[in-house]
Lab assay of single mutants.
Amino acid sequence: MLEGKVKWSNSEKGFGFIEVEGQDDVFVHFSAIQGEGFKTLEEGQAVSFEIVEGNRGPQAANVTKEA
């Protein structure tokens, strides 16, 4: 699992980007967020995730919010 911080997200469009130190930003779709209820990410929020190869390149999977 990698750790990063949410660079920005748009809940209306359903995606955002995660900033990882020393690496390119990672695309995240809201379907990759683990948990119940409305899935949102806040700018600056710490997250853990895996990287998978998506249709348009690397993207985050199994995203969990850190406490």
Rank of each mutant, 00 (worst) to 15 (best):
F27M: 02
K65Q: 09
L41G: 01
Q23S: 10
Q59R: 11
E43L: 15
G14L: 09
S9H: 09
S48D: 02
G16Q: 02
E53K: 11
F15Q: 02
I51N: 01
H29L: 09
V6P: 00
V28F: 15
F38T: 12
Q45I: 09
S31N: 07
M1A: 09
P58N: 06
A67C: 12
H29S: 07
G35M: 08
G37E: 09
A60Y: 02
F27V: 01
Q34S: 10
F27L: 04
T40Y: 12
E12T: 12
D25N: 07
T64R: 15
E21A: 12
D24A: 14
E19Y: 11
N62G: 05
M1Y: 11
S9C: 15
I33G: 04
M1C: 13
I51L: 11
L41S: 01
K39Q: 14
K5F: 12
G57N: 02
T40D: 08
D25F: 05
M1V: 13
T64K: 14
V47S: 01
E3T: 15
T64F: 13
S48R: 15
F15P: 00
T64H: 14
Q45R: 06
F38I: 13
G35V: 06
S48E: 06
E19V: 09
N10C: 14
N62M: 08
A61H: 10
V47T: 02
V20I: 10
E66V: 15
N10Y: 06
V47Y: 05
G35C: 10
E53H: 13
L2K: 10
E42P: 08
L41N: 01
G16D: 01
K65E: 04
K39R: 10
S31V: 03
E3Q: 15
V52M: 08
S11N: 12
V52R: 08
F38W: 12
V26H: 02
N55I: 14
G14H: 10
V63I: 05
N10A: 06
A46V: 14
E53C: 15
G16Y: 10
G54R: 06
Q34H: 09
E36R: 09
S48P: 00
E3M: 15
A32Q: 10
V47F: 03
V28H: 03
F15K: 00
V6R: 01
G57M: 03
K13R: 11
A61T: 09
E50W: 13
V47M: 03
E19L: 11
W8G: 00
S9A: 14
E12G: 10
T40V: 11
D25I: 05
E42I: 13
V63T: 02
E12W: 12
E21K: 12
Q59F: 09
V6C: 06
V28M: 07
E53L: 14
Q34K: 11
E43Q: 14
Q45V: 09
N62W: 08
S9R: 11
F49S: 00
E36I: 11
V20D: 00
F17T: 02
M1F: 13
F49E: 00
Q45W: 10
E12P: 07
V63N: 01
A46Y: 15
S11Q: 14
G57S: 05
G14C: 13
E21T: 10
V28R: 00
R56T: 07
K5A: 05
E19A: 14
A67F: 13
N55R: 15
V28E: 02
S9Q: 07
N62P: 01
R56K: 10
L41C: 04
G22N: 07
I51P: 01
N62Q: 06
F15V: 03
V26G: 00
A60T: 01
E66F: 15
V20M: 08
V47A: 03
I51D: 01
G16S: 04
D24F: 10
P58Y: 09
K7G: 03
A61R: 10
E36Q: 11
F38V: 13
Q45H: 06
V20L: 09
E21M: 11
T40R: 09
S48N: 08
P58C: 08
Q45M: 11
Q45Y: 06
A60M: 01
N55D: 12
G44C: 07
G4E: 01
G22P: 02
F17P: 00
D24V: 11
G57I: 02
G4K: 01
G44Y: 04
G37K: 08
N55T: 14
G37L: 09
Q34D: 07
E66Y: 15
A61M: 11
Q23R: 14
F49A: 01
G35D: 08
G57W: 04
Q45S: 08
N55V: 14
T64Q: 12
G35E: 08
I51K: 05
V26Q: 01
W8S: 00
E50L: 11
K5T: 11
F17W: 08
K13S: 06
F38M: 12
K5E: 03
G54M: 07
G54F: 08
Q34M: 12
P58W: 10
S11R: 14
E19C: 13
R56Q: 08
P58S: 07
G54E: 04
G4Q: 01
E36V: 11
F27E: 00
M1G: 07
S11Y: 12
G57R: 06
I51A: 02
G37P: 07
G44V: 02
F49L: 04
A60I: 03
E43K: 15
S11C: 14
V26D: 00
K7M: 03
F38S: 12
E43I: 15
F49N: 00
E21R: 11
G37R: 06
N55E: 13
V28A: 04
E42L: 12
Q23D: 06
N62S: 08
E50Q: 14
F38Y: 12
G44D: 03
E66C: 15
Q45C: 10
Q59Y: 11
Q45D: 14
F30Y: 10
G22Q: 04
D25E: 04
G16M: 05
H29P: 08
E66W: 14
S31L: 05
E12L: 13
I33V: 11
F30C: 06
G22S: 05
G35N: 07
G4M: 04
M1H: 10
R56N: 09
V6T: 01
G35F: 07
F30D: 00
V20P: 01
N55K: 14
K39A: 09
F27G: 00
E36C: 14
Q34P: 06
V6S: 00
V47C: 04
F27T: 02
I18S: 01
I18R: 02
K13N: 05
L2T: 08
Q23L: 11
K39F: 08
G37N: 08
A32E: 07
K13M: 09
F49I: 01
G14T: 14
E19I: 09
F15E: 00
L2W: 13
K65A: 11
F15W: 14
G22D: 06
K5P: 03
R56Y: 13
K5C: 13
D24E: 11
D25L: 07
K65W: 11
L41Q: 01
P58I: 09
G16E: 00
F49R: 00
E42A: 11
I51E: 00
E21N: 10
E36G: 11
E3P: 08
E53T: 12
M1D: 03
F38E: 13
E36L: 10
H29M: 07
F30I: 06
V6H: 03
A61W: 10
I18D: 01
